[in-house]
């Protein structure tokens, strides 16, 4: 079943005084099935983050629409948007976006507290999640006391605790060392196996090679896509690498 459908997205940024126009997205269309693990790749400036922000309803497209289970998210009223985001989307950011005034536990609880859930339920949801993400023993620490990998796993826990329809990850391994990256990607795969839909934007080959499908964006358009099928991570890695090389060289030739 199609969970997310992106249709003909276009985004043009106008500078403040109406001067130069910058086209971030030209015409992007794709869809994500329930339970899929999709990576979107592209170079810096290719429009990846803009795309993710629009899907996350943090930004509005110039034209085109985003449907989540058939509902156009840009048709939702501003006043209900925050609630919609809270209930349906989980976010993982490159720079973690943890609040330094909260302990790890409270950071994870934040979306549930905002939703007005009882404390008992929060604890019940947190326990298995913290075990799975291996953060049970740092729950009482503060963000400045833990490592980057631990911070990102905290952020993942925060994204998952609301049981969202889809997890949106923006360059989640961007600020991590290789060991933490491996650990996080392993966890993403595991979560995905349990049925969680994940949409990840990245320019890391390694991160993308864990996904079930990779979309390539260039100059604001979906250029190409690769399905994993029965490939191993290594084979997927090789294939993505080849595709990127091909894309780049073709780009230079053109």
């Amino acid at each position: 079943m199609t969970l997310l459908e992106v249709r003909n997205l276009k985004k043009v940024y106008t500078t403040r005084f109406g001067g130069a126009k910058v086209q971030a997205l030209a015409n992007v269309s794709f869809s994500v099935e329930e339970g899929e693990y999709v990576a979107i790749m592209g170079e810096s400036g290719s429009g990846k983050t803009t795309l993710l922000n629009i899907i996350a309803s943090l930004d509005k497209p110039t034209s085109g629409e985003v449907l989540l289970r058939g509902v156009n998210i840009h048709g939702i009223k501003e006043s209900q948007l925050a609630e919609f985001r809270r209930d349906n989307l989980g976010f993982v950011f490159q720079d973690f976006n943890l609040l330094d005034t909260f302990s790890v536990r409270d950071n994870i609880f934040l979306p549930l507290v905002l939703a007005g859930r009882p404390y008992r339920e929060m604890e019940a949801r947190l326990k298995p999640l913290a075990e799975k993400l291996e953060i049970s023993d740092i729950l009482n620490k503060f963000p400045y006391e833990i490592s980057g990998g631990q911070k990102q796993r905290t952020a993942v826990a925060r994204a998952l605790i609301t049981k969202p329809q889809i997890v949106l990850a923006d360059e989640p391994t961007g600020a991590l060392d290789s060991k933490s990256t491996d650990q996080l990607l392993r966890m993403f795969s595991e979560i995905n196996r349990e049925g969680q839909t994940i949409l990840m934007v990245t320019h890391s080959l390694k991160a993308a090679s864990h996904a079930g499908r990779v979309l390539f964006i260039k100059d604001g358009e979906v250029y190409h896509q690769i399905y994993r099928g029965a490939m191993s991570n290594e084979a997927m890695y090789q294939k993505i690498s080849d595709t990127l090389t091909a894309l780049t060289t073709r780009g230079y030739q053109a």
Partner: peptide, 15 residues
């Protein structure tokens, strides 16, 4: 910055 993050994780502007 703090309020930016809260908005990203689902706090409305009104809240």
């Amino acid at each position: 910055e703090r309020f930016e993050i809260m908005q990203k994780v689902g706090m409305s502007l009104g809240e």
